[in-house]
Computed example of a mutant assay.
Amino acid sequence: MRSKWLLYALLVAGCLLLLTGCGNGTRVESDGDAFYRGTDDTGAEVVVAEKPHRIVSLGRGMDEILLGIAPPEQIAGLTSTVDDPGISCMTEEARAVSVKLKDRSPERVAALDPDLVLAIDGTPKELVDSLRDLGIPVFVSRTPNNLDDIFARIETVGCLIGQEENAAALIAEKRTLLADVERRVGDIPEEERPIVVAFAFSGVFGRKDGLFDDMCRRASLRNGVAMAGLTATTAVSMEQVVALNPDVFLLPTWS
């Protein structure tokens, strides 16, 4: 039975991980002259004059948030990878949006006549600056450090695009899933919790106090590489991974 809920916990964590590309939310300020006024995760001011109706996403995490809370007619473009079932959990919903951007040049994005662009911290700064120079509002999100950061980002995107109720419903749905996992596996003693080691194509990932580490804690799992000392500045060797004797390896399959 425990193995069943281990699998369930991993699946829930995996679905939430697909919503990354987000960060801490900012408070909306209303001044009568703008629909939204605030700052993004880089500290840049973002002013949206009216409720946006032609939103372009430049990050898969933003794709999936948009598809979860916005009607298709409010979305002008998504990234090309949102159609790939190997890394996207919203492929069915994405069919309703016709434009999927492979070419993310300023000219191609601007040609969609967006009234809001949602970017992530991996978006080239030159692209963000070029779009802003054209007068297009761009909100840049940083990678979240924990699940609460993800929920805060969903809330902020809801405010940005005028879909607060849908954002609140999505957050409530995901919190219910997490509560169910914690109810079923939360009483497993620390020393009995399975050790999980996750890999990206570049090697192990899941630094201490990062997003994946938080997911493991919520699912009553032990993040092996955090146990071995992986941080933003400290690497972990394969010998250290082997010494952990992990119960589960999470391996990438997407190419």
Rank of each mutant, 00 (worst) to 15 (best):
D247M: 11
S30I: 08
M227D: 13
R104C: 10
I136N: 08
E191K: 04
R37L: 02
L211N: 09
L66P: 09
M1N: 15
P252Y: 00
V99Y: 06
S130P: 00
R193G: 02
I154V: 15
N24A: 13
C159G: 14
V82M: 03
D113R: 14
V248F: 07
P124T: 09
D214W: 01
F205M: 12
D40K: 01
S3P: 07
C15A: 08
T253C: 07
D84V: 08
L66Q: 02
S88Q: 05
L211Q: 08
P52T: 01
V204S: 12
R104H: 02
S57E: 01
L134D: 06
A76H: 01
D83Q: 11
A111P: 14
R60Q: 05
E107M: 10
E126V: 14
F151E: 07
E191T: 12
A76Y: 01
N245R: 15
A49Y: 02
V117G: 15
Y36S: 04
V225W: 06
G210P: 13
I150C: 11
P52V: 03
S88P: 03
M238P: 07
V140K: 14
I161F: 07
S57Y: 00
A70G: 07
S237Q: 10
W254K: 08
E64Y: 00
Y36T: 01
T42P: 00
Q74W: 06
R95G: 14
D84G: 07
T42M: 01
F139L: 11
P246C: 07
E190C: 04
G122H: 12
F35S: 01
F151S: 05
L230I: 12
A200Y: 05
D129S: 15
D63M: 06
T231W: 04
G59Y: 01
P85I: 05
V185M: 07
E92C: 06
D214G: 10
R184A: 09
L134C: 11
V82T: 11
R2T: 14
L116K: 12
R222A: 04
L11R: 07
R184N: 10
L19A: 00
T123L: 10
P114C: 15
R175M: 07
P144D: 11
P85G: 05
V28W: 00
L10G: 10
D209W: 11
D33G: 05
K102E: 09
G43P: 06
T20R: 09
L116C: 15
L67E: 02
E126K: 15
T234R: 14
V46M: 01
D33P: 06
P137H: 12
L7C: 13
E73W: 04
G21W: 00
D213A: 11
T156V: 04
S88T: 13
L131F: 15
D63R: 04
D31E: 02
G206D: 08
L18I: 03
D40G: 06
P85R: 08
